[in-house]
Every structure is written in C-alpha cells, then in structure tokens.
C-alpha cells in the first residue's frame, strides 16, 4: 500500500515539477533541457498584456477576499444569534454558493447583471446632469462580486467552525466581570477567531486569483491572468507560460501553507 501511496504523490507532483523545471530551460523546446536560464521569466514580465492581466488579478483577488472576509465573518457571528430555522436557510444558501459549479455561477451572474444594467443604465442617463452619464458594465466590479460570493461562503464556513469550538467559559467569565459586549468581543472572541479569518482571507484570495471559469463569463472587456493564460495555452505550449505557471503555483502554495499554519496555530 505504501508503494501505491508514493506513486499517487508522484502522480500529483511530477507534472507540476516538470512545468517548473522547463520554465528554467535555456532552450525553446519542451522535450529537451538544454541548460539553466531565467530568460523566460524576463520575457513574461516584460510582456505588457501579461503584466496588465496580473495586476488586474491581484486587484480583484485582494478586493474580493477583503470584502468576503468582512462579510463572511459578520455572517458567521450573526448566525450564532439566530434561530435554527433562519440558520438552516443561511447554511443552505452558503452551501449552495460553494457547491454550485462555477460555470452555472458564471452564466447566471452574467444573465442577471446584463438584465440589471439594461434597466439601470437608461435611468442613469435620464437622471445624470452632465453629458457623459456613467454606464454600468461588466468588468472589475462583476468579477469581484461573483468571486466574493464563493469566498464569503467559504469564510463564513471556516469562521463558523472556529466559533463552534470557541471557549464559552471565557466569554461568560468576561461578561460576569462586567465587560461590555464590545470589550468581550474585542478581547476574547476576536483573538480566538482571527486565525480562521486570516485563513479564510488567504484561501479566498487564492480562489479568486486562480479562478478561470467565473471570470470568463463576467469579465466583460477585462482580462485576468487565468483568462490570459487560457487564451495563450490554446495557441500552444511555450516556456513563457511555464514561467507564469511557476509563479502562480509558488504563490498559491505559499498562501495555502500560510492559511493552514494560521488554522493549526492555537488550535488547542
């Protein structure tokens, strides 16, 4: 059985290792390694389209993860204070936000937003005093909102789990000692759930940064890094994409390891 497990881990990691290895290839060809070079990283980082896509992705991932961390934490705290029925409705919706395939989230958000903009834009044009009324359109906002849905549900789930294992004695002791609810929250609850909030933020960031399919539908004229990479891959495999893939993989691994470390910290 151990041999089988070793083989599975090799299966999981060898293809990735190969991509990383060939990102340092001096030559052009994917089949032979002709020497060590970082030229493809230089090429990738001097490609203006790629850098633009990378910046967009960083902006979108940061914003959606921040919003999701706040909204998800608030939701987890709020759900501690409601009845079983309300809680079940929320749990169901949050679960759906996580489980529904990205392609369905993408198209339904696309349809709803296009309809919404179709109604709102004429109004804006009517009400706007100047010549150039703002027009709502697909773009950063729609990607951030659509990514935020999954991320918020994820944060609510992670923080909710942590709240469930919170030491109630401390909370009771705090209020017995006449601490205000706010003080109790700040000095007892928040420090205990903070690792979960941070882990949720990091995973939300990773999700948004890596997501292709949702952004593909709601990006409008914007490009994110996965959309750019997808378009390039369809034109063929190049060492430049290997370099980008390596950067993305290393970044994701760091974020996930950091998130796991946050969750395991102070688990006792």
């Amino acid at each position: 059985m151990r041999a089988f497990v070793v083989a599975v881990f090799a299966f999981l990691y060898l293809p990735i290792a190969l991509v990383v290895l060939f990102s340092f290839n001096a030559g052009h060809h994917a089949s032979e390694f002709t020497g060590f070079s970082t030229q493809w990283y230089g090429k990738a980082l001097s490609n203006p389209f790629l850098v633009e896509a990378l910046k967009n992705s960083l902006f979108i991932a940061t914003t959606s993860a921040l919003l999701a961390a706040v909204a998800g934490t608030a939701a987890a705290l709020g759900l501690q204070r409601v009845g079983a029925r309300t809680r079940a409705v929320f749990d169901g919706l949050l679960g759906a936000a996580i489980v529904v395939p990205g392609v369905v989230i993408g198209i339904s958000t696309l349809v709803a937003l296009v309809q919404l903009f179709g109604v709102v834009n004429p109004f804006l044009a009517e009400l706007w005093p100047g010549d150039q009324p703002p027009r709502l359109a697909l773009g950063y906002g729609s990607i951030i909102a659509a990514h935020g849905l999954f991320s918020m549900a994820l944060v609510a789930m992670i923080v909710g789990t942590r709240l469930g294992s919170l030491d109630r004695n401390l909370v009771e002791a705090s209020s017995d000692l006449y601490a205000t609810p706010l003080t109790t929250f700040r000095s007892i609850v928040l420090p205990q759930i903070m690792p979960a909030v941070i882990a949720g933020f990091l995973l939300a960031f990773t999700f948004s940064f890596d997501d292709f399919i949702i952004a593909f539908f709601v990006a409008g004229a914007q490009t994110t890094l996965p959309i750019y990479v997808f378009a390039s891959i369809r034109r063929g495999v190049t060492p430049e994409i290997n370099a980008v893939a390596t950067i993305v993989l290393v970044a994701s691994v760091l974020l996930v390891v950091l998130a796991q470390w946050q969750l395991r910290r102070r688990k006792q």
């Binding site: 940064f209 292709f212 996965p226 891959i233 893939a245 994701s252 390891v257």
Partner: peptide
C-alpha cells in the same frame, strides 16, 4: 495544496 492551486495550471501541466 494541489486542491488550492490553479486547476488551469495543473491541467496545463498534463498538456505538457
């Protein structure tokens, strides 16, 4: 770790 790394990049690895 692989679960949280880009499916696009991991699928690309197999194209390779």
């Amino acid at each position: 770790i692989p679960f949280w790394t880009s499916l696009l990049m991991r699928t690309y690895a197999w194209m390779y």
